[in-house]
Computed example of a mutant assay.
Amino acid sequence: MNWPYPLWIAHRGAGRLAPENTLAAFRHGAGFGYRAFECDVKLSRDGQPFLLHDATLERTTDGQGVAGEQEWAALSRLDAGGWHSRSYAGEPLPTLEAIASYVLRNGFVLNVEIKPTPGTEGLTGAVVSRRCAQLWATSRTPPVAPPLLTSFQSAALQAALAAQPELPRGLLLEHWPEDCLAHAQALQCSAVVAQYALLDRARIEALHAAGMKALAYTVNDPAEARRLIALGIDGLITDAVDHFSPGPGVHD
């Protein structure tokens, strides 16, 4: 495919500078010039796709328990900003639709990590991919790149492939199994998104030879960013949006 995504991608909106996976974080990241964003999406009990990284609510909201076991009506009332700082108190959990509206109206691009509640991998992959396809298809803005769907969960990517094969997918890797390229190809992935220390010249070249792009997370060190750029990396996901310019090159 013609790769339409920028090199630099803001992790969870603005890294650690604002409450992750909120509209406030996206706006903060955009203020540093970022035009590509990563976020985590899971389902509420009643099937609403919304942004949250953890399976449970305690770390980044004032709620308790497993997020996916609760109705959206309850989740929508939680404070997802006060844990970060007082200035963000009251920031709500956003729906996938709200984030899509923001990025589409601004011409930004999105990397959606499918983050299922354990046991809902297939359902989450199917629902998130279908909803993404609907939201991007109905956008009234000039055409922008489709969302890149990524996941550590093969079952979620398989379900996304079955539901919306036209949307690009990426396999997330915390380790590098010997068969990971074949596995990514079986899922018809456009990219592999690996923990940055796993990527060297040989692996990046192997991905390119297999027709896939190589992306790295979470790159916060300038020396690592320079190393990967020299090796031909296709995407860098970072928390350090205040240190790295999203334009060409690396700035500290």
Rank of each mutant, 00 (worst) to 15 (best):
214 A>P: 11
66 V>L: 06
242 D>M: 01
24 A>G: 10
97 E>T: 15
73 A>F: 10
243 H>L: 15
57 L>P: 08
87 S>Y: 07
61 T>K: 09
57 L>G: 05
107 G>R: 02
176 W>C: 02
161 L>M: 15
131 R>Q: 15
29 G>P: 05
218 T>H: 09
141 T>F: 11
40 D>L: 12
146 P>F: 09
8 W>I: 00
48 Q>K: 13
27 R>D: 12
91 E>S: 14
1 M>F: 10
143 P>D: 06
62 D>K: 03
72 W>R: 08
93 L>H: 08
244 F>S: 09
155 A>E: 14
180 C>T: 05
94 P>Q: 05
175 H>G: 09
209 A>P: 09
228 L>S: 08
151 S>R: 02
250 V>W: 02
26 F>D: 02
11 H>D: 02
81 G>L: 05
67 A>F: 00
158 Q>C: 08
78 L>I: 14
52 L>F: 08
222 P>W: 10
134 Q>K: 13
91 E>Y: 09
117 T>M: 06
135 L>R: 00
138 T>R: 15
25 A>Q: 10
230 A>H: 11
179 D>Q: 09
50 F>R: 01
68 G>H: 02
218 T>E: 11
142 P>A: 13
182 A>D: 14
29 G>V: 06
2 N>I: 13
56 T>N: 14
86 R>L: 14
239 D>G: 03
181 L>W: 07
162 A>Q: 15
80 A>H: 00
13 G>K: 01
118 P>R: 03
